[in-house]
Design a protein around this nucleic acid. Structure first.
Length: 833
RNA sequence: GCGGAUGUGGUGGAAUUGGUAGACACGCAGGCCUCAGAAGCCUGUGGGAGCAAUCUUGUGAGGGUUCGAGUCCCUCCAUCCGCACCA
């Protein structure tokens, strides 16, 4: 006797559509609530079964907020630019725009079939010119503010496809699609100076309510470290001008232990300082490292590699000559691209020095063992620590030794004093370094927003802004009234042989007139990364049809900030950080009302295949949501996807689990059908605490236990009827989880209007408190019996009840009671001897 | 390698945040209903011993703190996510 989910779901979805039940109003007396999920990339595979996990969870939150009298904005759109669509288009000879249209149609149909309470009237699409007009406009704001600039960077280049590759497309050093050799090639790229916002992106984390692990990951990604930049003079064998090598270190206190310098292979001074004798070896080394990824280079399990340049520098503290090496464990993007190596106190320097037999000088004395150890740490740990200090290098803090006048200082003091000494001598300065790098904003691709700049040689000396000295270098912004710069609709958009964007070969698009002098000029042919459109979409939802601004000030003031934003942990360091940055920039320019866009950020775990691995087409373990909705219903899918495990953690899919939830929904359906109005009998003590718990669980994002609470409730009710009021409360609270069936049940018991229009139940406090609880009685920490008593009973009462228990008596016999631990409502533990 | 997380029955997971480990669900076993099946309902179900009451063991491994540890501390192991041109 299963209910007919197909009929019921269609019926109520039509009704919601017709009534516009979930459309948000841009004004009103109700408090606003802006609830946001990460909009999907409409891939050709269709909706992934994981998408509904996040969407249903926030759907439940959104629905609950509506019941509680909020004006809720829960919008949806498409993040549709990107590589997979373009690659598929090239492969099939079709147009990316056509493919995107098909994919979004599929996604829309699939999402609608789930009964999600999105406001479909606000749908946005990043590939819509009416949308990316504003992405381009914002890019120009960055440009005009001097935050967008061009620089030369190495990109991955497939020598066979003759195309630039994303890191992801390079698999173990070769091109993912053709297996061809990949090399690094220099290319001019647009950059956006996110590093100028590093400090604020860091500081303002204190003002938002994100899960702590999200904050931690962002902090670590920004990677602020305070340290020193120290100048090392190169001993020049030719005796001409002496080059200076600047190194960054967080441990200036170890300067006396610096026994060699290491430059990144890309460091600009490498060629200049390398001696003739060493030149060919160094060049060979640079060539081999250019094929490695940063991750390979940092990998400690690989043997350290490096090569001596033949040159020496002077350690300013010891005045000793120390050799200069080139090694790929030093990265060019971090710090100054050069380090002073202190092998006695840095593990990577240590293993490098061991391998190449470089001197190791100890300059920090570890604190005495008892100081390292907190009193409560066991002996074995002490032994382990001791072993570690003796055999390895010591990277902790301690006391300086062999450090001239600074010997005897603590690490903190030595840092400060050596830095002071360097500053005095003009050999170094205090610096703050961030791991965060500027944002590479160029892609040599077709399917992205064109960068709305025009290159005009005649205007090369124009200042960027009136009265400023910074020049445009010939890059002139397209005039606002000429936006959007629309992607040309062409038949061929394959990448070119030269590494230029495919747009470069479309001559009548590239050739244009300069917006400034109206002379002949050429368009920028690079496009923006997919991150651009997704950095501000939450602003467009607020006023999606506005064609004179990305959103009106009044509406921005009304809806911002986003009250709750949910997305995957995998977006923490890129999308989430980029969009915070983007919003901060718009705030600085006076375009948005708040510096931080998201008040609260939550995350969901991936849905894995039933074998615990990632779902993938090639493995054939992909679950199709259409089939699930067809065979078991959207309500069952919605409830199961949340029941399957803790919301924040990855969980394997299980069809059996889904069937279990469907059985539960059938049970609810049967219960309502056979329900009879009762007056006297009251299950309040059963119903109220349970639906209160569900309500609390929703707020705490514990959807899995919310579902199990419902199951437990119906198990307890069996076939006994509750009062109409109790049943109505149950249906309303269950509504966000299974909205189709609950509306049907609502109708079945003769109620009118939609469940969605009901207010969230108030809970009767008198029914929530428990008069009696069952408590465990332990003897020496082992449970020997249970007693039933009031949760706040006196210790004496508990003891008497416990002593009445036969088994407890047995275990107490002939023993002496040493201590009694009684925690009301929790435990009674009797300690005996 | 670096950063973030996770580890509990045959399976997914729960545990009032230091207080009766295994809620809820799947699976399995037995029963009721049925001409039979499906569906539904009831009972049992971590391992070991016992007819049973009960005892014992048990939350990745090892150690520690505590009256009491899945939960806190230390060391290790395994797995997952991210690492900047996938989205």
């Amino acid at each position: 006797m299963a209910y007919n989910h197909q009929a019921i779901e269609q019926k109520w979805q039509k009704r919601w559509d017709k009534d516009g039940t979930f459309e948000a109003k841009d004004e009103g007396d109700k408090p606003k609530f802006y609830c946001l999920i990460e909009f999907p990339y409409p891939s050709g595979e269709g909706l992934h079964i994981g998408h509904p996990r996040s969407y249903t969870a926030l759907d439940i939150v959104a629905r609950k907020k509506r019941h509680q009298g909020h004006n809720v904005l829960y919008p949806i759109g498409w993040d549709a630019f990107g590589l997979p669509t373009e690659n598929y288009a090239i492969k099939t000879g079709r147009k990316p725009a056509d493919i995107t249209k098909e994919n979004t149609d599929t996604f829309r149909r699939q999402l609608k079939s789930l009964g999600l309470s999105f406001d479909w009237s606000r749908e946005v699409n990043t590939t819509d010119p009416a949308y990316y007009k504003w992405t381009q406009w914002m890019f120009l704001e960055f440009f005009k503010a001097g935050l967008a600039y061009k620089t030369t960077l190495a990109i991955n280049w497939c020598t066979s496809c003759k195309i630039g590759l994303a890191n992801e497309e390079v698999v173990s050093g070769v091109c993912e699609r053709c297996g061809g050799r990949v090399e690094k090639r220099d290319k001019e790229q647009w950059m956006i100076a996110i590093t100028k916002y590093a400090e604020r992106l860091l500081q303002d984390l204190d003002t938002v309510d994100y899960l702590e692990k999200i904050k931690t990951q962002q902090r670590n990604w920004i990677g602020k470290s305070e340290g020193a930049e120290i100048d090392f003079e190169v001993v020049d064998p030719q005796g001409s001008v002496t080059p200076i090598i600047k190194v960054f270190t967080t441990r200036p206190d170890t300067l006396f232990g610096a026994t060699y310098l290491v430059l990144a292979p890309e460091h600009e001074l490498v060629e200049q300082i390398t001696t003739n004798a060493q030149m060919s070896e160094v060049q060979m080394y640079i060539k081999t490292t250019s094929l490695k990824t940063d991750m390979d280079r940092g990998n400690d399990s690989n043997e350290k590699t490096g090569v001596f340049t033949g040159a020496y520098a002077i350690n300013p503290a010891t005045q000793k000559q120390i050799p200069i090496w080139v090694a790929d464990y030093v990265l060019t993007g971090y710090g100054t691209g050069a380090i002073m190596a202190v092998p006695a106190h840095d593990e990577r320097d240590f293993s490098f020095a061991k391998k190449f037999e470089l001197p190791i000088i100890k300059v920090i004395e570890p604190p005495a063992l008892q100081e390292v150890m907190p009193a409560d740490v066991g002996v074995s740990h002490a032994a382990q620590t001791a072993i570690k200090i003796i055999s390895d290098c010591f990277t902790g803090e301690g006391q300086s030794i062999h450090s001239g006048e600074f010997s005897g200082r603590s690490t903190a003091e030595a840092k400060k004093q050596i830095l002071g000494w360097l500053e005095e001598k003009g050999l170094g300065k205090k610096t703050i370094n961030y791991k965060l790098r500027d944002w590479v904003f160029s892609r040599q691709r077709y399917w992205g927003e064109p960068i709305p700049l025009v290159y005009c040689e005649a205007c090369a000396n124009l200042p960027l802004k009136e009265g400023e000295t910074v020049q445009t270098h010939g890059w002139i912004p397209v005039r606002e009234e000429q936006l959007p710069v629309v992607l040309p609709d062409v038949d061929h958009y394959e990448p070119t042989d030269t590494g230029e964007s495919p747009l470069a070969s479309i001559e009548d698009w590239v050739n244009t007139t300069c917006p400034n002098c109206f002379g002949p000029a050429r368009r920028e042919t690079d496009t923006m990364p997919n991150w651009a459109g997704s950095s501000w979409y939450f602003l467009r939802y607020i006023d999606p049809h506005n064609d004179s601004a990305f959103a009106s000030t009044e509406k921005l003031n009304y809806w911002m900030p986003v009250d709750l934003y949910n997305g995957g942990m995998e977006h923490t360091t890129l999308h989430l950080l980029y969009s915070r940055f983007w919003n901060k920039f718009l705030f600085d320019q006076g375009h948005v009302p708040l510096s931080e866009p998201y008040t609260r950020r939550h995350s969901h775990g991936l849905v894995l295949a039933d074998d615990g691995t990632k779902m993938s087409k090639s493995k054939g373990n992909v679950v199709n949501p259409d089939e699930i909705v067809r065979d078991y219903g959207a309500d069952a899918l919605r409830m199961y996807i949340l029941f399957m495990g803790p919301f924040e953690e990855p969980v394997p899919w299980s069809l059996n689990g889904l069937i279990g939830v469907r059985r539960f929904l059938d049970k609810v359906d049967r219960y309502v059908r056979s329900w009879k109005e009762v007056e006297a009998e009251d299950f309040g003590k059963i119903v109220e605490p349970r639906i209160k718990k569900v309500s609390d669980d929703i707020d705490a994002f514990k959807f899995n236990t919310a579902v199990s609470e419902f199951m437990s409730l119906f198990n307890d009710l069996g076939d006994q009827s509750v009062t109409r009021e109790q049943l109505k409360k149950i249906l309303v609270v269950l509504g966000p989880f299974a909205p189709h069936l609950m509306n049907e049940c609502w109708e079945l018991i003769g109620e009118t209007r939609l469940v969605e229009e009901q207010s969230w139940p108030e809970f009767d406090a008198s029914l929530l408190v428990q008069d009696e609880i069952e408590m465990g009685v332990q003897i020496n920490g082992k449970v020997r019996g249970t007693i039933v008593l009031s949760p706040n009973a006196e210790e004496q009462v508990a003891k008497e009840l416990a002593l009445a228990d036969e088994n407890v008596q047995k275990h107490l016999e002939g023993k002496e009671v040493v201590k009694v631990v009684y925690v009301p409502g929790r435990i009674l533990n009797i300690v005996v001897k």
